[in-house]
């Protein structure tokens, strides 16, 4: 199988075939699709009646109802609109980490998810865009619903990780300027930055009315610190070397990490950001299924 397509493993995609990515919020789009628009208009499909109030457009009055009831009701319609999905992929150096028992680095795992999502979005004829970032926006591909765009996206996704650190706060501020149209922004990152900075960055996007979903990708080794022997930890992203007895500091480390994760989770919850922690030993299909299911349930 072509290397670029390994993240599009047919088995994984087959399992996702029945799932539909439904944005939690219906965003305004150009292409009528399968996604409900929050805006009632006069487009295609009747939705419901509403009692007339002064100032309403009388073009939408339902005269048949008036004839029957002698009351003024307006017709409301559900507009079909398209989805714009921005995939923000973290390509900082920390994403290159692969634990001793993990088959994929965090970046490789993230690439698989990003590719799969992109494919799904394009399959539903929605538009998908891609942003790669570390301490700044590295690549930006504007959203498009052209199926031919997929290869371009995959090619960019597969570029080597940078040697820079993650800086979500400043990067997302920069990104917010770029994403002019509202849509779903799927952030795939380990979020290894100050929790406050990360949340600030995410809030920037929320202020722009984007529907945010965050997949935090962590290696199981990062969650458990499973080393027994004395270890020198060579820090990525310019961090120093640390010699430590993992057995001695395991509990403290996990407490620190847990505190960080809790801050991120709570911050996302407060800002109505869909958050999910994905360890890289979790099967891709399970991770995607769980994530998409939760998106579906929230959109209803």
């Amino acid at each position: 199988m072509d290397n670029s397509l390994k993240s599009l493993d047919p088995q994984t995609l087959a399992k996702l075939q029945g799932l539909q990515l439904r944005a939690r919020r219906i965003v305004e789009g150009f292409v009528a699709g399968l996604h409900r628009s929050p805006y009632r208009g006069f487009s295609v499909e009747f939705a419901e009646h509403r009692e007339y109030v002064p100032g309403d457009d009388i073009r939408h009055l339902d005269w048949k109802v008036f004839g029957r009831t002698d009351k003024f009701y307006l017709k409301q319609y559900e507009d079909e609109t398209n989805l714009i999905c921005y995939i923000a992929l973290d390509v900082s150096e920390s994403m290159a980490y692969r634990g001793p028992d993990s088959p994929l680095s965090k970046l490789e795992y993230a690439q698989c998810i990003a590719a799969t999502v992109a494919w799904l979005v394009l399959q539903s004829q929605d538009a998908v865009g891609l942003v790669t970032f570390d301490d700044q926006v590295r690549e930006y591909v504007a959203p498009s619903n052209s199926p031919t765009r997929l290869n371009e996206l995959l090619s960019i996704m597969e570029s080597k990780p940078s040697s820079n650190k993650t800086a979500i706060g400043s990067t997302f501020q920069q990104l917010a300027q770029k994403l002019s149209k509202r849509g779903v922004v799927l952030v795939i990152s380990d979020l290894f930055d100050e929790a406050k900075s990360v949340l600030n960055g995410l809030r920037q996007l929320r202020h722009r009315q984007h529907d945010l979903a965050v997949l935090q990708i962590l290696d199981p080794a990062e969650l458990d610190l499973p080393f027994d022997r004395p270890t020198v930890f060579r820090g990525l992203e310019g961090m120093p070397k640390i010699a430590a007895q993992p057995r001695a500091i395991r509990t403290a480390y996990k407490a620190e990490l847990d505190s960080f994760l809790q801050q991120i989770k709570r911050g996302c919850l407060d800002n109505e950001i869909d958050y999910r922690l994905v360890p890289t030993d979790q099967p891709l299909d399970v991770a995607l299924s769980a994530f998409l299911s939760s998106r579906q349930s929230r959109s209803r």
Binding site: E93, S94, M95, A96, Y97, P100, K106, D190, F192, L218, D219, E222, L225, F227, R229, P230, T231, V232, F233, R234, G235, L236, E237, M239, P240, I242, A243, A244, I249, Y253, E256, L257, F260
Partner: peptide
Amino acid sequence: RFVETTWAATQFLL
């Protein structure tokens, strides 16, 4: 007899 490994989550270790 330290073993060496790269590590991404250094901030929490520190």
